[in-house]
Design a protein around this nucleic acid. Structure first.
Lengths: 267, 267
DNA sequence: CCATCTTTGTGCACGCGTTCACAAAGGCAT
DNA sequence: ATGCCTTTGTGAACGCGTGCACAAAGATGG
């Protein structure tokens, strides 16, 4: 998965744990698939397998919503789909705006997964005057100047930021001032927002970096296993340099797994 | 954030908690920004603010890596950049392949954040013969038939899946069979993989659904506050339908969430 | 109507992650 | 040198999330 929730200190909204909320969409997806195959009921065991979670966890998650199952039988698929949809607020249509129509913004605009889940792309917004009026995903791109009007005219509460990092904070402030209270942020920056505004971030390079960490670990273990008593492959001697220059020099001098130049370019 | 880690049961690799690993890229980004502004040292308080976390948490995170700070002064920026980069395995180049060059795959191929963090896009792969040879992000798209050869020729260990949901499982199996041990999955499906393979998933519609949940909660609270004793705004009467048909009818009468086509396009 | 079998719902214990609060450590001025 | 001041590193407490294991509930067959 990508990265997680920001700021909001796990509000435990109306008793439903944040961790459970994060899994509900997963269950919903699995249930929708069953529904399409006209499966009438499903046991916690089966559904848990389909969603890739533990069955006890799934039952506990559902218990926060209410007692929707039948002992000895399982859960009614259609009924559960409806209950979860309602709980997630997907029984209504959420207009969203996408700000920043570059490669990623355009891909998001074309993404079918939004519309099929109760989200309607109400507008595409970009700061580049050359983009104005240009059709993307069958919809004309509008200029940032009209951001406030677009938000309020469409009653938008959810905004997606796909701008470069430098513009993200300012865009978020304008969105919030215009009435947006939930933001999905793709820009690699920490957004600082007032209380009452939810921010979730998706950072592609962070996900890859986490994978790289585990990948390196695997490689290290493998190397250690092969090389016998190679103990400090993962933790080289703490060559604690006094000055930054010395540290950089030391870094450059090493060739191995750790060696190489330090990553100077940001994300 | 997007979604999270899958399967891997929090291995607690070499004593570094998974939660800490997930934050290291965040610190790294903040430190890199400081480095570019030639800031020599930074306190845990300042860096924590820049990374959007608690300073105590940051210090504890760093304590897992070693004692890299100086009491009364703070942390040496360059030195810390190097240490974290090394810990994350970013001091080496990771070749990655992107499978599924649709809107999203193309956007990922063009995304600058990969190359700048030590990740090199080694190949773009798509199942559509019409795509073969077509340049995307200055690189010719290759056909799925050559997947295994591409993986082994380039020594690829990390694969990115941006195919439709239906193809993802099969693609993952081929990637893994060819030597890939870490997968970043953008397709809205649960991948089932053998032990030793790490999967992280990014699901855009899930993120929006989580936001919608909180958004609905805000709206409900607001409505309740305005309407006085409106208690069941969030939990309407449990109209518990007896039969699946009745529930389905109720669901179908709505326009949004449940009905509709499944997400064919991945994130 | 009763026995049996399946599956839910949950009490409980455990472990991870977060946060507080403070002692130890080092720089710096006098 | 010595004392003060700043900031790290961490011990300890707490709370959330997870998973086990089982009793209660209901369906089903005789």
């Amino acid at each position: 998965m990508a990265t997680g929730r920001t700021h909001r200190p796990a509000t435990r909204s109306r008793g439903i744990p944040e961790a459970t909320v994060a899994r509900l969409p997963l269950y919903l997806r699995a249930l929708t698939a069953l529904s399409e195959r006209s499966v009438p009921t499903v046991s916690s065991e089966e559904l848990a397998a389909a969603a890739g979670v533990n069955s006890a966890k799934l039952r506990k998650d559902f218990s926060y919503l209410g007692s929707y199952g039948t002992r000895g039988v399982g859960y009614d698929v259609e009924y559960l789909v409806y209950q979860i949809s309602r709980e997630l607020g997907l029984t209504q249509d959420w207009p969203v705006v996408i700000v920043g129509i570059g490669n990623l913004g355009a891909a998001l605009a074309n993404y079918g997964g939004f519309a099929s889940r109760g989200f309607r792309v109400a507008a595409l917004i970009d700061a580049d005057p050359a983009m104005k009026g240009k059709p993307v995903a069958g919809m004309p791109v509008q200029h940032t100047d009209d951001l406030e009007k677009i938000i309020s005219d469409n009653g938008v509460h959810i905004g997606v930021i796909a701008t470069p990092a430098g513009a993200a904070q300012q865009v978020s402030e304008r969105l919030i001032a215009a009435g947006v209270t939930s933001i999905l942020n793709f820009a690699p920056t920490v957004l600082s927002v007032p209380d009452g505004v939810d921010v979730r971030k998706v950072d592609l390079s962070i996900e890859l970096q986490i994978l790289a960490f585990h990948e390196q670990r695997k490689a290290g273990e493998e190397a250690a296993a092969v090389a016998g008593a190679a103990d400090d492959v993962v933790t080289p001697p703490p060559l604690r340099a006094d000055t930054a220059a010395a540290a950089a020099a030391a870094a450059a001098s090493r060739k191995g797994p750790d060696g190489d130049v330090p990553a100077v370019m940001p994300a």
